[in-house]
Simulated scan of single mutants.
Amino acid sequence: MHCYVYASLRKADSYLWLAERDAFASLPVELTELLGPMRLAMELELEAHRKLPHEDAAQVLEHLRSRGWHLQLPPAQRLASTNHLAYGHAPSDGQAR
Rank of each mutant, 00 (worst) to 15 (best):
A96V: 15
E62P: 02
P74W: 03
L40W: 08
D93Y: 02
S92G: 05
A90Q: 01
A48G: 15
S66E: 04
E30S: 08
T32H: 13
L34K: 05
A80Y: 06
L16Y: 06
L35R: 02
R39W: 09
L18H: 07
E55V: 04
L64C: 07
D93A: 02
Q77N: 09
P37D: 00
A12R: 15
G88Y: 02
A86Q: 09
G94E: 05
V60M: 11
L34F: 07
P28A: 05
A48Q: 14
P53V: 13
R97I: 14
A48R: 08
Y87K: 01
W69S: 06
A57P: 12
L16C: 03
V29K: 12
L27N: 00
R67M: 03
S14Y: 11
H2I: 09
A57Y: 10
R78E: 05
L73G: 02
A41G: 08
H2C: 06
R50L: 12
R21Q: 14
R21Y: 03
L61T: 04
Y87I: 07
A48N: 04
H84I: 00
R10M: 12
G94L: 09
Q95E: 10
Y15F: 14
V29F: 09
R21W: 02
G36Q: 05
A90W: 00
Q77E: 12
L85Y: 03
E20I: 01
R21E: 04
D56M: 03
H63T: 03
K51W: 13
P37R: 13
L35A: 04
H49P: 07
Q77A: 05
Q59P: 06
G36C: 11
S81W: 01
A90S: 06
L44D: 08
H89L: 02
E30W: 12
K51D: 14
S81I: 00
Y87T: 05
A19T: 10
H49D: 15
L27E: 01
R21F: 01
S26Y: 00
S81F: 02
M38R: 15
L73P: 03
G68T: 02
